[in-house]
């Protein structure tokens, strides 16, 4: 089943065009990697899918399960099953991680027409997912991401992914700021969430991450377009030859 369909997407920021005619089709169960040099529009693409303000879509469309995603508020997109793991998760002092997770989970459940979880149900669910990600109770009592290391912040993103059970996960440079051990924990958390109903878009600079999260498809982005698509072997080719060959192709 097609989850996400992007057709001839054009996006600008401050009248500068960042995405210039991008096409992408993602089916349930698939893992797509999007690679590309800095400034190729990868993060912009993830922000536009999630609904971040400040971008102007000047052409094309994004369909999610056939519905026009661009017409939805960010929270509606989340409720529909779109999840963006942030490259730089924000710190929110004064809002405990626990309170945040519960508020967000219940908001999504409500939007999906399901009842709110009781406290014991919620705690049980948290325990199920936090343990395998090495997230302690103490971390959950602190303000969201406040005083968290880079690795802890990314683990917290994966925790939310597990909790909210989205059908499309966009991982924006989930590997940035992670040492090799943290990368293993995060990748194994993500791999545990792979399923035939769920799709993932993994945005990264480096092939390294794709050793741990092995994609079905690899796309190369340059200057706001997908310039080459292929299987996982394309990532190895990029590692060997770099992005330079695509700069001219775009």
């Amino acid at each position: 089943m097609t989850l996400l369909e992007i057709q001839d997407l054009h996006v600008g920021v401050d009248s500068r065009e960042i995405i210039r005619g991008l096409d992408l089709m993602v089916n349930a169960g698939e893992v797509h990697a999007i690679m590309g040099p800095n400034g190729s529009g990868k993060s912009t693409l993830s922000h536009v899918i999630a609904g971040k303000p400040g971008y102007e879509v000047t052409g094309g469309q994004i369909l999610f399960r056939g519905e026009d995603l661009l017409e939805m508020e960010p929270n509606e997109r989340a409720a529909k099953g779109v999840f963006l793991a942030f490259q730089y998760p924000v710190e929110i002092p004064g809002v405990t991680a626990m309170n945040f997770l519960r508020t967000a989970l219940n908001a999504q459940r409500k939007a999906r027409g399901r009842g709110e979880l009781s406290t014991p149900e919620f705690l049980k669910k948290i325990r199920e997912v936090a343990g395998s990600l090495n997230i302690t109770r103490d971390m959950l009592k602190r303000g969201v991401n406040v005083g968290f290391s880079g690795g802890e912040k990314k683990r917290n993103e994966v925790l939310q992914m597990a909790l909210f059970e989205p059908s499309l996960c966009i991982l924006d440079e989930i590997d940035s700021g992670l040492d090799i051990d943290a990368l293993r924990i995060v990748a194994s958390g993500i791999n545990g969430l792979r399923s035939p109903e769920r799709a993932m878009i993994v945005i990264t600079h480096y092939q390294r991450l794709l050793h741990y999260i092995v994609p079905d498809y690899v796309h190369v982005m340059s200057k706001g377009r997908v310039v080459k698509s292929g299987g996982k072997e394309l990532a190895l080719e990029l590692e060997a030859c770099g992005y330079a060959q695509f700069e001219t192709a775009a």
Binding site: L84, T103, Q160
Partner: peptide, 8 residues
């Protein structure tokens, strides 16, 4: 935006 992206 972070909170909205999480469903609020």
């Amino acid at each position: 935006f972070y909170l909205r992206a999480r469903g609020l």
